[in-house]
């Protein structure tokens, strides 16, 4: 097992090491809120980070399993492609922004704009999410076991949103949709595979009304 102690090792050296993919397991000590930890990894390495991280931790992750035993700053797992990023604490803004695949698990709460512009990632939040979450979400699923702030799913495309708790005002073109058996099934699977303890039957589903898909003068108020 390789250990990087960011009190003495640089983030640059850590990332270079990860890009050269020379370990199977790696531990990062004293992250102390530093930015860009473990970003751009492209191998099936397991990275565990002992503490809080700053911006863009695990950005553009491919294949790696990254666990953050602390809170994460803005843009954690932004543009994630594959692999898994798990945050034991809370996540700041833009968690999983424009993620294209893989899984992001937030065991605490997520702040505003969680899953903004998401393009295929599955995001499971055990707590609540802030306002404007899943803004312009294109693909993938956002699962919120707690509550969701205002303007959820604003200008959403084909992503699926599941919320167990209360929601604020829905965003433009976002509506509640029927929870079909297929949706229930995929939600239950997501909860099981991410180890988040919640009953799929207690969730409601939200998605696109598809009224903004092609300009229509009679929907101009929604623009």
């Amino acid at each position: 097992m390789t250990v990087f102690d960011l009190n003495s090792d640089s983030v640059r050296a850590l990332n270079q090491h990860l890009h050269d993919a020379s370990s199977d397991y790696l531990t990062v000590k004293n992250p102390a809120g530093r930015h860009c930890i473990a970003c751009g990894v492209d191998s099936a390495v397991e990275v565990s980070i002992d503490g809080h991280v700053g911006y863009y931790c695990a950005g553009m992750n491919k294949k790696a399993q990254v666990t953050i035993a602390g809170n994460a700053g803005p843009g954690v797992a932004e543009n994630i492609m594959s692999g898994t990023v798990r945050i034991r604490g809370n996540a700041s803004q833009y968690a999983g922004a424009s993620g294209r695949g893989g899984t992001l698990i937030i065991e605490g709460d997520a702040s505003a704009r969680c899953g903004i512009s998401m393009k295929g990632v599955d995001i499971v939040v055990a707590g609540s999410v802030g306002h404007m979450s899943a803004f312009m979400a294109q693909k993938g699923s956002l699962v919120v076991c707690g509550d969701a702030g205002d303007f959820l799913g604003d200008s959403i495309y084909e992503a699926c949103i599941y919320v167990r708790g209360k929601i604020g005002e829905l965003g433009a073109d976002c509506i509640e949709k029927e929870m079909t058996a297929a949706h229930l099934d995929s939600l239950a699977q997501l909860l099981t595979s991410t180890g988040v303890d919640a009953n799929a039957k207690e969730f409601r589903r939200y998605g696109s009304a598809r009224k903004l898909y092609n300009f229509n003068v009679d929907h101009a108020d929604d623009y």
């Binding site: 990332n15 930015h35 860009c36 970003c39 751009g40 911006y55 950005g59 843009g75 932004e78």
Partner: peptide, 10 residues
Amino acid sequence: IKIQELREIT
């Protein structure tokens, strides 16, 4: 910081 991230990735 975003630029720092892009530099780290590349």
